[in-house]
C-alpha cells in the first residue's frame, strides 16, 4: 500500500471490461455477443446482491462505447430517484442527447428496478416503448418476480447466481496478494461463508480485516462484529437487564452518533437477535423478532422513529424481567 491515496477495494478491483469478469461465464458470453453485433435488446439482470449485475452492465457499456462510455449511459437508481416523474424527465432529456458514433442507441441503466411500484413500472414500460428507437434499458433487480410481466416479456432475461466458493476465494486471494495483505488461507473461506456469495461484502470484509492487521478467522469475525455498532448490542442488553432509562439514552446516542434511521437500527437489532454475542434463551429470540417486526411495520408506515424504538425497548424491559 504505497500510494498516498486509497480507495475501497470494491471500487479498485471492479472488473472494467466483460472479459475481466471471471465468473458468470454463460452470461458474459451472451453479453459479449451483443458487443460483437453492436446491438442488443432491453435487458433484465436479476439475482442476489453482490453477484455482479451492476458491474456487468457497466462493463458491457464500456466494451460497446469505449473509455468515455459514461456520456452515452444514463444511470438511474429506483431507490434514490424521487418517483417516476423524475425518471421520465431524465429519460426524456437523455434520449435527446447525442448518439454514439456507429451505434444507434444509448443505454439507460436502471438499478433496483424491483423497488418501483407496479404503477411506476407501467409508466416505465411506456417509456421503454416511446424511446426504443434511440435507447436500450438495462433493468437491474434482486427479485425478478417483483418486475411486472409486460416488462419481463420485453427484456432479455439474465439470472445471476450467487458466486461459487472458489470464485470468491480466488478473487480474495488475488486482491490480498496484490495489496500485500498478510492472511490465513482459512480466513478467506470464512469470509466466503459469512458473505454468502456476495462479492461486494466479501471484499469489504477483507479490506476491513486487513486494516486491523493479519487477516485471520478471528479477525474476520471481529471485523464483522465491528461493522455492527457495538452500542446496539449494549442497548439491547441494558433493556433486557431492566435498565430502560439507560437503554433509552443509548438509543438516542446511536441515532446521533451514527446518523442511523429507525429502519437502520431495526435492521441492526435484527442481526443482533440472531447473533451469538447476545446471550438469551432461544425462544426469546423469536418473541423479540416478532415484536421487532411489528415495530418495523409501524416505522415503514411513516410513524416516528424515536417513539417506535422507545416502545420496543420498553417491551424488551418487560420481557427481560419476566425471564429473570
Amino acid at each position: 500500500m504505497s500510494s498516498a491515496f486509497d480507495v475501497l477495494w470494491v471500487e479498485k478491483y471492479r472488473p472494467r471490461s466483460l472479459k475481466d469478469i471471471v465468473n458468470q461465464e454463460d452470461i458474459v458470453k451472451r453479453l459479449m455477443k451483443f458487443v460483437e453485433e453492436r446491438n442488443m435488446p432491453h435487458l433484465l439482470f436479476a439475482g442476489p446482491a453482490g453477484t455482479g449485475k451492476t458491474t456487468a452492465a457497466h462493463a458491457l457499456a464500456r466494451d460497446l462505447y469505449g473509455e468515455g462510455y459514461k456520456q452515452f449511459v444514463l444511470e438511474l437508481n429506483a431507490s434514490d430517484e424521487r418517483g417516476i416523474n423524475v425518471i421520465r424527465e431524465k429519460v426524456k432529456e437523455f434520449a435527446r442527447s447525442r448518439t454514439p458514433p456507429g451505434i444507434p442507441f444509448k443505454i439507460i441503466i436502471l438499478d433496483e428496478a424491483d423497488n418501483m411500484t407496479s404503477d411506476a413500472q407501467q409508466a416505465l414500460r411506456r417509456l421503454m416503448e416511446l424511446y426504443s428507437a434511440s435507447t436500450r434499458f438495462i433493468l437491474i433487480a434482486n427479485y425478478p418476480s417483483k418486475i411486472i410481466d409486460p416488462i419481463q416479456s420485453r427484456c432479455a432475461f439474465f439470472r445471476f447466481q450467487p458466486l461459487k466458493k472458489e470464485d470468491v476465494v480466488e478473487r480474495l486471494r488475488f486482491i490480498a496478494e496484490n495489496e500485500g495483505v498478510d492472511y490465513e488461507e482459512e480466513a478467506l473461506e470464512t469470509i466466503y461463508e459469512i458473505s454468502e456469495g456476495d462479492m461486494r461484502k466479501a471484499i469489504n470484509i477483507l479490506q476491513s480485516a486487513a486494516a486491523l492487521g493479519r487477516v485471520t478467522v478471528d479477525s474476520v469475525f471481529k471485523v464483522v462484529g465491528m461493522a455492527r455498532p457495538r452500542e446496539v448490542r449494549d442497548m439491547l442488553k441494558a433493556a433486557l437487564d431492566g435498565e430502560f432509562e439507560a437503554a433509552r439514552t443509548m438509543l438516542r446516542r446511536i441515532m446521533i452518533e451514527y446518523g442511523l434511521s429507525g429502519e437502520d437500527i431495526v435492521r441492526q437489532i435484527h442481526k443482533e437477535i440472531f447473533g451469538n454475542e447476545l446471550k438469551i434463551p432461544e425462544e426469546q429470540r423469536v418473541l423479540i423478532a416478532d415484536y421487532l417486526g411489528e415495530i418495523h411495520y409501524r416505522l415503514v408506515e411513516g410513524s416516528d422513529d424515536d417513539i417506535q424504538l422507545t416502545a420496543f425497548l420498553a417491551w424488551l424491559t418487560v420481557l427481560g424481567r419476566h425471564a429473570s
Partner: peptide, 10 residues
C-alpha cells in the same frame, strides 16, 4: 454511490 456503482441505500 457514484464511485462504487450502487444505490445510496445500498
Amino acid at each position: 454511490a457514484e464511485r462504487i456503482l450502487a444505490s445510496r441505500a445500498t
